[in-house]
Design a binder for these strands. Structure first.
Lengths: 349, 349
DNA sequence: CCTGGCACTCTGCCCAGGACTGTGCCAGGG
DNA sequence: CCCTGGCACAGTCCTGGGCAGAGTGCCAGG
């Protein structure tokens, strides 16, 4: 992207800001009136023609004002704007809301709720990644002779479960032996190391319990492999996408909702976006054509032990990027704090 | 509701069916043509006037056809229609989809997905009630000296967790003592009995562990008290409410989505509806004005040990009630079967 | 390089007319 | 007493024309 003439940059900036506020194509006359640019509408027009030539703005039709293109928003975000930090009382309110959460799940739920209300878009919150968390405890519950429910309790307070289907029946007390052997070996281990350690336990274990222990190791391995797609996702404020008056055709709204229902897809989009941090992905930059009229703004947050997740919003391309970025970043950092408070206590000396 | 003249009943039925299919007000002429009623449009008109007098149909405006009112749909559902059972291959496909589920949560998720695709409305699935389930195991994990994570594993394979904040620190081995004492006492007990039994354990326990055991009892009690509102809810196919062309104003769509986001509200609506089984609640019969243009069709299902939940759909009042009822009931019974298969194996001799 | 002016284009709105649909009512016939 | 055909009436939807408004593109001049 070539760098822009100073006045043209100012005009692009004005177009973006006006359009984001009003939702209507903005013309040369209005522009000079509201932003006293010191030049005449005619000059602005020729500049706008240049901006259009450069692919930064378009015409809906011959005689309408200009509208930013995705590239226009991109230029605006990259070089014409800077995030406007939230007001201190907003940050305070934010932290107040998040701090009191009783557990991680509830905290993440609240986070998605508060972020959606703050931005008036759909909020996306991805739970801390499992792979770097530490395992606290494994519980094995025998539901049937060959089927065992394995429950994994992780230091962030998250609880995961998985059914194990064995080829042969296991005796109740062998389940207990496996349980003890595994827990002795893995307590407070990084989840990533767990499969290998458990596999080691299996090797040294008596033959009756070996298959069970191996099954547990396999379950953890599977869980970690899935972790990318299997991460927990909390979505909030989807209704915001229906109001607001973005999107002209109802079909667009529907396809956005359809996309939001597919957690796997949303997770992929988020992960894809988060090659930068904070990340802004505008319209066609998103990997899904269904979301061509949408943008994603996201940021990472860290959690105890180097694990972490991300928060973000999905909104129309016509969004206030500086404000949204600020909100997303503020929420990410508040979440980080609240999480630290919640699980920082979770490493007793 | 007084009973209706036979011809008038036929006319009402025809109006409902035509309107549900086409979405447009239906007039006297079309009616006699398509349903060869054996009388002239004029006669139909006078009957329609009577039906309108009775509050079963309305005019959108002076010179439009008639549209059923909520009461009209109600009459149709109660006395003019009967559910059309699904085709056998549909039932088979349904069961095929549900049977392979690895665990209860996934099963319920799939259920909501399949029900929404079957009906093209938003599907609601409430997990089996906790209060009549049996407790399999309680796990206590100490996250900090005064904070304990209690994990409850129930026979349906469901896992619930709850944080316990104690007033005083507990020693690690006391946590283990409490854990053993509780598990010895409660294994395979109905959840409803659990609080009292644990309270009994607390009484006989040494003073160091007493507060912890009591906290566990309180947690279960709280969990059960909440059970009404705290039940797990799986919502699927919400995007269907945006397509379809029901709802004229976008505002309605938005308020439906807002309602769907409030799980507590949805659960209340469902529980309220399920005084009958199967239940049909039409428009103004629902306890929420926001849902005045919607109907709920729901049915209960039973799960192991007398516990159970419900499945249902939320759609526009203008829905095909016989078909929807059939779908909901078929899904409920398939879910019941799949659940039995999944947890029936869970009562080893 | 900027500016004012001018012609042009396209939208949105209003209004009127006509086609259409559907109703309500009434008088007449079985 | 109920059904029927006929007729007047009311309201929607569509179309077309006219008109105002906004905005552009271009060009000649400072």
């Amino acid at each position: 992207m070539t760098t822009l003439d100073e006045r043209r940059a100012a005009i692009l900036k004005a177009i973006v800001q006006d359009y984001v506020r009003g939702g209507e194509p903005v013309g040369s006359k209005r522009l000079v009136e509201e932003w006293n640019l010191g030049v005449s509408p005619a000059t602005v027009r020729s500049d706008m023609a240049a901006l259009e030539e450069a692919g930064l703005i378009t015409h809906p039709h011959t005689s309408a004002g200009r509208v930013p293109t995705d590239a226009g928003y991109r230029y605006f975000v990259d070089t014409l704007s800077q995030t406007e930090p939230l007001r201190p009382e907003q940050v305070a309110a934010l932290e107040g809301l998040l701090m009191g959460s009783p557990d991680v799940e509830e905290l993440l739920r609240r986070t998605s709720s508060v972020l959606s209300r703050l931005t008036r878009f759909a909020a996306l919150v991805v739970a801390p990644r499992l792979d770097r968390s530490r395992l606290r405890h494994v519980e094995l519950v025998q539901l049937a002779p060959t089927s065992i429910l394995a429950v994994f309790i992780v230091d962030t307070g998250r609880v995961d479960k998985r059914m194990l289907d064995l080829d042969a029946a296991v005796a109740e007390h062998d389940v207990q032996r496996a349980r003890h052997a595994i827990n002795d070996a893995v307590a407070n281990l990084r989840l990533l190391q767990v499969p290998d350690v458990i596999a080691g336990v299996a090797n040294g274990a008596p033959p009756e319990v070996q298959p069970l222990v191996e099954a547990v190791a396999a379950a953890v391995r599977r869980g970690l492999a899935q972790a990318g797609d299997g991460d927990q996702l909390f979505v909030g404020g989807t209704a915001n996408m229906a109001g607001g008056g973005y999107f002209d055709r109802i079909e667009q709204v529907k396809s956005v909702f359809e996309t939001l229902e597919e957690q796997v897809v949303v997770l992929r989009v988020l992960r894809d976006a988060l090659q930068d941090d904070p990340a802004v992905r505008i319209g066609s930059e998103l990997p899904l054509v269904e979301l061509a009229a949408c943008s994603v703004v996201a940021a990472r947050y860290d959690a105890a032990g180097g694990s972490g997740g991300s928060v973000g919003v999905l909104g129309p391309t016509r969004m206030d990027y500086p404000k949204t970025l600020a909100a997303v970043q503020a929420v990410a950092s508040s979440l980080e704090k609240a999480l630290a408070e919640l699980t920082g206590a979770s490493t007793p000396s």
